[in-house]
Amino acid sequence: MELILNILGAIATVILAFVVGMTYGGIVRKITARVQNRKGPPWYQNFIDAYKLYSKSTAIHHGWMHRMGPAFLMVTSVVTLMFIPVLNDGGWFENLTFKGDLIFLLYLMVLGALGMALGAGQTGNPNSAIGVTRGLSQMVGFEIPWVMALVALMIQYKTTSITGLMEVQQESGTWLMFSSPFAFIAAVLAMLGMFRYSPFDIVGAPSELASGPVSENGGKYLFTMMSSGSIYAFVKLTLYVDLFMGGADNLIILVVKTFTLYMIPVLYGIVSPRYRTEQAVKFFWGWPLFFGLLAILYAVIF
């Protein structure tokens, strides 16, 4: 009985992540449109796009790795989702919350991108290859401040588990973004790269790279990528809320917190043009790295 409930909870989590992620995507398109003085598509436009992509025929075949690429993305998103506590007390969304830790999560979070890189490589499209090299360089950029922020948290609170860090926040009553501010700043700056909005949308770059690694994928492939991207956005936002903003007691608080956090990369992106690859890497190895070092010093000293 418990097993069935757990499976149902996992399915509910995936559906929740999908719906919330897609809705956020639609709202972002609306906000972008309003900033550019347009009316913009309705908030549910992403659902229509996804359904249309799913109903398109997909007669593209470049080999097995190409087929596996989107599947890698989807599997990574869902598995990562399973390891992240959605709510503080678990409840319906308990999943595998208590069995993973941050170091494991760090490895898991790059798996999808690597699978996608292999898949894009097999298409033989030069745009895909350039997009992949750009994406991996950018990842080298933002992973460093992100890992440093997490290491600072691990040193400061002497635990590598996400639930451990959440308990620290519940016991002390202050969010980690206040009790270890430099780690939060480094993590938020790394988040700008993680979400790939401008100025860090160098991977997709529609005008130069014809959407990069995605360029040979249409129809159901694109649907898989789109939905896994939405789930993954929800995963990352929930992870940030869990780590730095004290988690969430119910879904409404979760949505408010994640949406507030999501607006940082989105609003910064709307008003920014695109960086070149080396500029992006330079950005992450500048101030974010500095704040990451500061966070570790702060953690060691206090």
Binding site: K52, K56, I60, N127, P206, L209, A210, S211, V214, S215, E216, N217, G218, G219, L222
Partner: peptide, 9 residues
């Protein structure tokens, strides 16, 4: 807009 023929309608 779509970037490539694969994605376009």
């Amino acid at each position: 807009g779509a970037a490539t023929p694969r994605q376009a309608d």
